[in-house]
Design a protein around this nucleic acid. Sequence first.
DNA 1: TTTAAATGTCATGGT
DNA 2: GTACCATGACATTTA
Length: 691
Amino acid sequence: MKYLKPWWSDGGSLLHLTILLSLAELRLDLDLDLYLLFPPRTLLGDELLLRNGQTSHISALSPFPASGGWGRAELLHPKCWERDPAAPPEGRLLREVRALGVPFIPSIRVDAWLVHSVAAGDADGAHALLGTAAASSAGGVGAGVDGVSQAAPAGGGGPRAVQSSLLVAEEEEKAPAEPTAQVSDAGGHASEENEVLRGVSHSPQHEENEQRSSTQKEKSLQQKNEDENKVADKPAWEAEKTTESRSERYQNGTDAFFSLEDLFQLLSSQPENLLEGVSLGDIAPLPRSINDGMNSPTHYNVNFSQAISHDVSLHEAMLLCSDNTFRRDPAARTSQPQEQILQLNSPTTNTEQTLPGTNLTGFLPFVDNQMRNLSQDHLYDLDINILDETNLMSLATGFDPMEVSWLLEETGYDSGLSLDSSNNSTSVIKSNSSHSICEGDTSSSSDLSHHDLQGAVGGYYPEPSKLRYMNDRSDSHFHGDLAFQHVSHNHTYHLQPSALESTSESFSMPGKSQKISRYLNDTDRNLSRDERRAKALHIPFSVDEIIRMPVDSFNSMLSRHCLTDLQVSLIRDIRRRGKNKVAAQNCRKRKLDVILNLEDDVCSLQAKKETLKREQSQCHKAINIMKQKLHHLYRDVFSRLRDDQGRPVSPNQYALQCTHDGSVVIVPKELMIPGQKKENQKGNRKNERKN
DNA sequence: TTTAAATGTCATGGT
DNA sequence: GTACCATGACATTTA
């Protein structure tokens, strides 16, 4: 029995971590292998042997008819609880699972929430009590391992948060009616946070909002009753859970409108839609009661992508949490979120597809509370002007906000990618939302194929042959779900982890870059920096497009689209860098070609030199042969020559000399031309030496 | 961990 | 003046 701290909790508040994990799971690619499809007979609590040799348990299991008889299971990975040095790095299991062809469902990491306490009474503690946002309402990441009943060690900071939430989970199971007091006993300051996070403020200033909320609750209760009837046909364990959860929630008066398992199944139902455009609001619908998360109302016929499209942006949430008024005056906190709720309740949402019994009114205060909690945990003393930057970066990167703040202060960022997210976000909101206005007819672009939509950097890689200059329709793609383009959302600029990664890269801090890169999924990791930057700012054009298009088209494109200065600056930088990159590549290629050509020249000249040397040698040999022949001839001639008395002619006194007409005469050496005389003397000396 | 090659980026000058 | 290109120098990434 040992207490293991969730590895992600170091240095961060629960809320921070919850958001981070959710974003990470959606944006990035961490541990998505935790969620697999299992055969129908897989039982809740079944022990699983993981690929890394560790064991885990099915922490939640839901029959899912749409998946063809397979059930969906949530697998609690030991890595959730501790960072095992021997464990495979993030992403490896995922790749292995993919390689095996195992059905794989990317989803939100469930260990950020309370899932279910399985195998109750199991002495080995096969409890899958996960760190939860529900537990976060008690002020910390809930993390029960090897037995929920084990008391967590005392400590401060992260461990304390874990401790408190763990105890809350335990106590709520025992006595759900009095969770707060016990949390207070266990977690110290957690009581206040719990109170804050537990629900909508009861301030008189928000009675109106409360009334709205109560109306929504009534509707949701009706929906829940209907859902309970549906659940009657489900397995006993599931039905039992549902019944219990209902009663407990009603007793507690903390109806959360829909459970974590709802959320999880919704997530699983349309995983593809979750990978993009999910904001903090997506993870907002978390139960305020742990039991909510533990039970499974199982509303299958819901479209989570629609539900999550009612997003409270991360930026907005951070603004809320960074607002001192909100932080210090609980009574004034709910007003703005409630307004957002009203705004975000899209009239176009199909009631069949909305979360059953869910009115976002019930969720958003939780988001607000989470944001406030985050600010209380980390950001209270930070300059409000940099809260957005630090929060966003810290949320997405896992850095401590103070560390991010230090980055912002210590380094600058060129290329116009200012981290002034308060401006950026606003401007980008303007940009994104204004596209439909500037460009006008949204429907006119309805013929765009998905490939076209992928052409934008903010989405996926384009197919170059299909590149088209993006219009407003493509922008909506950046916000994730095409099905919601018609909904007038406040698509606040969500600074994605990839954006933070690229931004942080610009700080030229290799260590940080590597640290951040761990949070990138494969897709983002394959993107170039500019592509990630463009994606971060939702540039509606592909990098390739930006770089390659003619200057006239480029300028007209910039003028046709309502882009912020930041976006224009980035686009121009991308173009400049891209062209320079190509130029540098060409330059290096040319330089390499020149070097190669010079090397070829050197080789050919060396070969030619060798050839000439050989020719020279052959010439020398020929000359020597000729000289020898001449010498022999010379001696032969003199041996046959006789003077008038018949005596032999000495070659020392006479020499043979060729005349102009080709005849040969014998000339006394005294009468020879000096040059010829020397040659004859030389030749005579040679002859004498040879003789 | 070190190192060299490859690549990206910036500054500058020329067209 | 602007855009583009070429290239040296330096930084960063990759193998």
